[in-house]
Design a protein around this nucleic acid. Structure first.
Lengths: 116, 116
DNA sequence: TCATTATATAAGTCTTTGGTTATATAATTC
DNA sequence: GAATTATATAACCAAAGACTTATATAATGA
């Protein structure tokens, strides 16, 4: 049973694609598809500065692809299931190899957060 | 009968998405999916300068999304069906609305080429 | 061969992007 | 309430993008 894809206009398609057309953001989307992560986890996994990660997350959030949730001193990000272009996002993520080396390397660096 | 999608790595996915993450190039891909167009047709349809169109086409060609064919003094561009990330391209184009206003407006400006 | 037509390329400009460092804010813990 | 921890934001910078104008190339046709 395949859902009928809601067709989208050019502008919103381009906006969504631009948000995901970066290796860091594409992989963040791949990760949050499965569960929520907090900023500091991404910092560890991507071995990237905290401001750099924050800015990538802001872009994804502004574009509507992720949602933010506060838990104590942490902010968790997860996939926004109410996003209009959700089908587009999923079809892109779906053809991204789960065995991809870059993805694997990043996943292997995941650390638990105290509140978990 | 749905074809099995070949999973792709992060780098090639991002490269393909970047090539399509522009309204002009996304719509060019939508157009060449159906048939080949020459540069001068795109210039008319997108109401954009010839060098600008040439440069967009070069990007698409360099990324492997389109192929070029000479017919007399014209150069026709069509979708490259041998492209590795073809499934990704098609799934993106597939969810782009055929009734999209921008697309319609561009299609309405199509003119015939002498050699047609 | 010369003018015309179709296209590419080069060089310049302006904007956007993705990082940096420094600092602000807000919750937690001592 | 002071120090610590998590995060955001601001200001800056270098590189990439998307145009522009000017010019080169290549095929066509007189």
């Amino acid at each position: 049973m395949t859902a009928v894809t809601v067709k989208r206009d050019t502008a919103s398609t381009v906006q969504c694609m631009k948000a995901m057309s970066d290796p860091t953001r594409l992989l963040i989307m791949k990760l949050v598809q499965k569960k929520a992560y907090c900023v500091c986890q991404f910092v560890d996994m991507f071995e990237m500065s905290q401001p750099a990660i924050s800015q990538h997350l802001r872009k994804l959030k502004m574009a509507g692809l992720v949602r933010e949730e506060r838990r104590g001193q942490w902010r968790f990000f997860s996939m926004n299931d109410e996003f209009g272009a959700r089908d587009l996002v999923l079809s892109i993520l779906n053809q991204l190899d789960d065995e991809d080396e870059t993805l694997r390397a990043i996943q292997s660096k995941e650390k638990a957060v105290s509140c978990d």
